[in-house]
Design a protein around this nucleic acid. Structure first.
Length: 507
RNA sequence: CGGGCUGUGGCUCAGCUUGGUAGAGCGCCUGGUUCGGGACCAGGAGGCCGUGGGUUCAAAUCCCACCAGCCCGACCA
């Protein structure tokens, strides 16, 4: 490029210019995913899928450690099963894909057309409460059969109108846990336990700090008694739901006929929960940590944590440089970070100079290491961290780097979390009047709104009407009703309020 | 489903008003010069201009129909 080299960032537009477009460009530049020919569906590319697989593996281990096991249930749900829980149907009906025919047949012109209609249409699962409930109804007879603690990793389909890569796609990947318990207390404890697992996973693995609590009545999962949630704040200060855990009471047990004989010999309905986390988390991580040069990955979920870039300007040193790179890679792979061997790659591709370097920057690899002829003399390496300015490089001895690589990764992981926490704190405000509230959520520049607002902690009288009014006026909703909190006065009506709640614009 | 817009090489688009049979940038391939760095020079591959019909000697360009996609609204992990 012959243009001025000053301050040129790899991603355009920058975050402050157009955040949604910046996000799309980061996803594209990092080769995480791309839109497919099927509307609303995405192709997840190896780098993006690698991130998901890491999330999956790590979260799965946490489920196992808390007594859960994996299973798999059908993609199709008979319409009659689906229709059993009234609120549930109403909540999902509009976004269900339906299979009405089996097989294709060629017509007179040789065109393929759906063949025989099904007696009963099949719904492509938007979530699996009802189909799993049908199995549970068979499995549960006695209180001795409880609890059932299962999880499944699956794809689901929700016919959404506004797809965006990872954040909202028609088909998405997730895990859904479904449990049955003997008592209300146990089921509530399960929902809370999972919320804690999610919170810890987000914080420790993804470097994503969250607020936890319950959803208000209007934002609840269709059919749930209580929905627990985690909400993260990304860099445009909007909220994004990072996972949900539902206490379903006996609603779904009644709908599916999950009954057992209790300790007193009486028939009783089971108490169920369900909980899920999706590929949306990949998008959340992107919006949380990335910068104007592209993706920035928390080391724990980076498919490659360290990339070694051989610098080979002269033929006569080429072989020795490559040898040194391979030896270092081998040494590093014998070391561990967060209980897993280091993921190291030597980029030997025959590509010119900085092209490779920039590719890895845009992909968000935590550590880049350069080794060239000059380093051979001194037995040194040049180390760059993705959480520091792109141009900064630190020279250190090869042995020192090998010995401290895992510590550097840890330091990056912590730094990303600290940075995100600080951002969240700086943009979370206690708000005490309606005027202040409206001001907080109104952009100064109405035509081209700048990044504004954040999370507002404000008292509220519990009325759905007030909620609706605020949503209409500002597109702001209650994201979380936190646990605990002192009583006060609703800032909108002056009426009594049980506790302050968190308001924000959301994805 | 309501309102606005667009369909031209892999990507972003120009050309269309004033019909004459296809262009640019990026990307890709080859060769060379560079290279502790997203470089440069030269050459090259790649398109029945969304689909169908009409007008005309002649249609990417004009007319009609259809199809598809995008953006703005209600829904949402």
């Amino acid at each position: 490029m012959t243009k001025t080299a000053e301050q040129k960032s790899a991603i355009s537009p920058r975050r402050d210019q157009d955040f949604p477009e910046w996000y799309q460009q980061v996803v594209r530049a990092a080769e995480l995913a791309e839109p497919s020919d099927v509307r609303g569906c995405m192709v997840i590319r190896p780098w993006g899928y690698g991130i998901w697989e890491n999330m999956q593996r790590q979260l799965d281990a946490m489920f196992r450690a808390t007594g859960h096991r994996n299973a798999y249930f059908p993609l199709f749900i008979p319409l009659s099963y689906f229709a059993k829980e009234a609120e549930h149907v109403e909540g999902f009906a509009k976004e269900c894909a339906v299979v009405t025919h089996t097989r294709l047949e060629a017509d007179a012109d040789g065109k393929l057309k759906p063949g025989s209609p099904l007696n009963e249409p099949l719904v492509v699962r938007p979530t699996s409460e009802t189909i799993i409930g049908a199995s549970y109804a068979k499995w549960v007879q006695s209180y001795r059969d409880l609890p059932i603690l299962l999880n499944q990793w699956a794809n689901v389909v929700r016919w959404e109108m506004r797809p965006r890569l990872f954040l909202r796609t028609t088909e998405f990947l997730w895990q859904e846990g479904h449990t049955v318990h003997e008592t209300e207390e146990q089921a509530r404890a399960e929902a809370t336990l999972i919320l804690e697992v999610y919170e810890r996973f987000a914080r420790e693995h993804l470097a994503v700090p969250v607020f936890t609590g319950a959803k208000s009545e209007s934002e609840k999962f269709p059919g749930a008694v209580e929905t627990l949630t985690l909400e993260a704040m990304v860099q445009d200060r909007k909220a994004i739901q990072a996972g949900t855990s539902h206490f379903l009471g006996q609603n779904f047990a009644k709908a599916s006929g999950i009954q057992f004989q209790n300790r007193e010999g009486k028939q009783e309905f089971g108490w169920t929960t369900s909980w899920g986390m999706t590929t949306r988390m990949v998008g959340t991580v992107v919006m949380m940590h990335s910068d104007d040069d592209g993706l920035v990955l928390p080391p724990r979920i980076a498919p490659t944590q360290i990339v070694i870039l051989p610098i080979t300007p002269k033929e006569d040193t080429r072989a020795r440089v490559l040898e040194t790179c391979d030896a270092l890679a081998l040494q590093l792979r014998g070391k561990h970070f967060a209980n897993s061997p280091l993921e190291v790659e030597v980029d030997r591709r025959d590509l010119g100079g900085g092209v490779k370097n920039w590719e890895w920057i845009k992909k968000g690899v935590p550590i880049r290491v350069e080794i060239g002829p000059r380093d051979l003399e001194k037995s040194s390496v040049e180390v760059s961290r993705r959480d520091q300015p792109i141009k900064s490089k630190h020279s250190m001895s090869l042995q020192e780097f090998a010995a401290t690589a895992a510590e550097i990764l840890m330091s990056i992981q912590q730094n990303l979390l600290e940075r995100a926490k600080k951002f969240q704190e700086e943009n979370t405000r206690v708000i005490e009047s309606k005027e202040e509230f409206y001001d907080f959520f109104t952009a100064k520049n109405a035509n081209k709104p700048e990044i504004h607002g954040g999370f507002a902690l404000a008292h509220w009288n519990g009325s759905g009407k007030v909620e609706e009014q605020i949503k209409d006026d500002l597109k702001v909703t209650i994201r979380v009703v936190p646990f605990g909190g002192e009583p006060g006065k609703c800032i909108f009506t002056g009426e009594p309020s049980a506790k302050p709640v968190i308001w924000a614009k959301s994805y």
